[in-house]
Nucleic acid binder design. Structure first.
Lengths: 287, 287
DNA sequence: GCGGGACAGTGTACGAGATAAACTGTGTAT
DNA sequence: ATACACAGTTTATCTCGTACACTGTCCCGC
């Protein structure tokens, strides 16, 4: 049952021994389990961490698309194939980068405050983190977080949401909605800024162009509501407002929906409490 | 609003002037503007629509990763390069596929009902659409929808949300949150089902593996809340519930957060209404 | 009704990228 | 000491996107 036969396999053997469902594998990968412990042969001059760090540095400097195995290897001053001693595939590398991008600590528990303030602090923290590693939002997400850093963030967010009185399962659902929204909103902002820069224009220009393009196609009869948006210049202003915080910080667009979500949670919890609490029996430390 | 800021030189055929920003370009692309009208030379045996349709068919049958220019061309019985007469690049093709995937009509306006019922019908419609073209959730989103089909869906969703009394700008924000969440939730489900199938297991097994993997790393002191999830088997059950509706239909996990969001909108609108008139007075507030 | 040029589709080629496999040197356990 | 495990390299292959030059078609103005 023990999993320490890895000393032998290298690549000769087909990996048939591990039941390896994807998420379990990734988890082990990120937690550094699954590392062999060789004490023979030349000393490694590289390490998995060094590889990941180089990849992160490259992505920070030149964007995710610059992260090729060759690129990372060059960054390190080694050959492309040397990386494969430390990661099984580029996919693995991306998985590791994903967790590595979250290396800043999430906001800690500040007991006194409103749970909502806690959640909003978490949201702000996530945005700051994305600001540091904007490429992270382009990485494929293979599932819920499972690396050490990802879990830290999940723990921190969940900790605050649970304080609302929501049960854990539903808290996870709310957290998921929050996370995906943060991520996607941020991604869109990065996209737009990139597109704007590529066109030598501003984000506001880009949105104006978008609105203008729509204007040619949107008819009042077929798209009355969208037409109204155009009429009221909603599409042009909205993201422009998000300008206040440097590169890609969508908070104004985000704050409103987030607050509505939290409102909704609050209302729900109150109603449950008022109605005698049917599904909240597990509040105390069960077990 | 009139649109005359750009020198509107005809897009007859020349590509001379296109400072067009990305979103504007994509819009024109999808609406079929920017098509030349040649009446010389051999008759085209292909068409942009045929190319897109073939790509969609391929994606439906074998997944997005099977959609290479060579693959699509083979599907059509033409050479790879022939496609480039109809799309400028693979990226363009993906943009077109994105809109093409939304070819089913969104739910129409059913006047009488609750606006929330309308929104939920829309949500359901989106999920059904994704169910038909699961690969669509993997396409890069270059911005808000701008193709005909995408706009139809946006219009339909917005139409319902606006009925809540929310002003258009905020309605867009709510719709965005909804869309991204739908998309990402669905994507995760597809991922998990794919991973499960690849491992010859069920989704439930995958989640069990995930929980087991976490269990090895999660300590009660560092991750109390997550540990509680594990203790209560929350992670293992949640997606298993989503099983009821064939391939990748996450509704149970989705319904709760969506309803909380709508609750939140409702509460917000009521509060605004109670505090004088909402329409423009609700500008700088936020909670 | 003819000839030229615009145009559809082809063939070839190239460069980037991931990665498989064989290979070379090194240093430690025996 | 020495064999072999192991780090890093070299070489090669396969897939892709796409640039470019080419071939054959058929509409146009003559």
């Amino acid at each position: 049952m023990d999993v320490n036969d890895a000393a032998d396999d290298g690549w000769g053997m087909t990996a048939e021994q591990q039941p390896t469902n994807r998420m379990e594998r990734d988890t082990e990968l990120m937690w550094g389990l699954r590392q062999s412990e060789p004490r023979r042969g030349p000393k490694p001059r590289l390490s998995r961490d060094a590889v990941v760090a180089a990849a992160v540095a490259l992505a920070d400097a030149e964007g995710l698309e610059a992260v090729s195995m060759q690129g990372v290897a060059k960054e390190l001053g080694f050959t492309t194939m040397s990386l494969y001693r430390y990661v099984e595939s580029k996919e693995d590398l991306l998985v590791l980068m994903n967790d590595a991008a979250m290396d800043t600590a999430p906001p800690g528990p500040c007991g006194g405050r409103d749970w909502r303030a806690g959640v909003e602090a978490w949201v702000h923290g996530v945005l700051t983190m994305y600001g540091r590693h904007p490429w992270a939002v382009y990485l494929p997400q293979n599932g819920p977080p499972s690396g050490p850093n990802g879990l830290r963030w999940m723990e921190a967010g969940l900790r605050e949401i649970v304080r609302s009185g929501l049960d854990p399962r539903r808290s996870v659902q709310i957290l998921t909605m929050l996370s995906t929204t943060l991520r996607e909103m941020f991604r869109m902002n990065v996209d737009m800024e990139r597109a704007a820069r590529a066109a030598g224009a501003t984000v506001a220009d880009t949105m104006r162009g978008y609105a203008a393009g729509l204007g040619r196609a949107v008819t009042e009869e077929h798209f009355p509501t969208v037409a109204r948006l155009l009429r009221e210049d909603v599409l042009e202003d909205a993201p422009a407002e998000a300008h206040g915080r440097g590169p890609a910080g969508p908070t104004d667009e985000l704050d409103f929906p987030v607050r509505r979500l939290l409102d909704g949670v609050e209302v729900y919890v109150e109603r449950q409490r008022a109605a005698g609490d049917p599904d909240k029996a597990a509040r105390r430390s069960g077990g």
